[in-house]
Amino acid sequence: MSDGSVLDHHSPYETPLHRDESAIAGMWLFLASEALLFGGLFLVCLVYSQTRAAGWAAGVRHTDLTIGAVNTLVLITSSAVYTMAVAAGQRGDNRGVVRFGLGAAVLGMAFLALKGVEWGQEFRESLFPGPHFALHGPDSGGAALFYSFYFLATFLHGMHMVVGIGLILWVCRKARHGAFGPAWSTPVDVVGLYWSFVDLVWMLLFPLLYLIGRR
């Protein structure tokens, strides 16, 4: 178990602060990289939503707006709750970190559960592209493209959610052992950056997958 207010003997840093700044910088860089990962996906989305507009819109109309909207609210709330965990960490309030952290994690799981329900519906309605794809007619090609992106994007985002929830639980465990204090709560902050990013990605996916073209 590491006590963050001291450096371990192999550490390349001069002071704990020096190390913690570096950790935050590292997370920002990683997120820049992630932004380009999703950026490539958004690019492809945007291209096809223009070149295959009719079919794309037909696909968008088939998504479940209610679940999507509720999930958006759930995720924003989760992010907000996690912010309180960050604040608690900075006060050195370990119990606050656990409480708010678990709250954020539970909301994240709720998001995944709802997403699972939505996927279940879609599979039952044969909306997964392939030979048995449910939508027919002249625009079905565009609609199938839409659903390819829908599934890939939500899967990739879902994987990020799983990782994020895991990280939050790890932070909660540390907090339960009283790891954080007013002088040191960097892991809470670093995980917070990641969690906000996952939230932000959804904020872009939601309009792309549920709104644009729906009318």
Binding site: L36, L37, G40, L41, P129, G130, A144, S148, L152
Partner: peptide, 22 residues
């Protein structure tokens, strides 16, 4: 740059795996 390759290859893998038309 690497993440853009990452997503491109992922799209390719997805296409190959499920026969969808990216």
């Amino acid at each position: 740059a690497t993440p853009v390759l990452g997503i491109t290859l992922l799209l390719l893998a997805f296409e190959r795996l499920f026969r969808v038309g990216v």
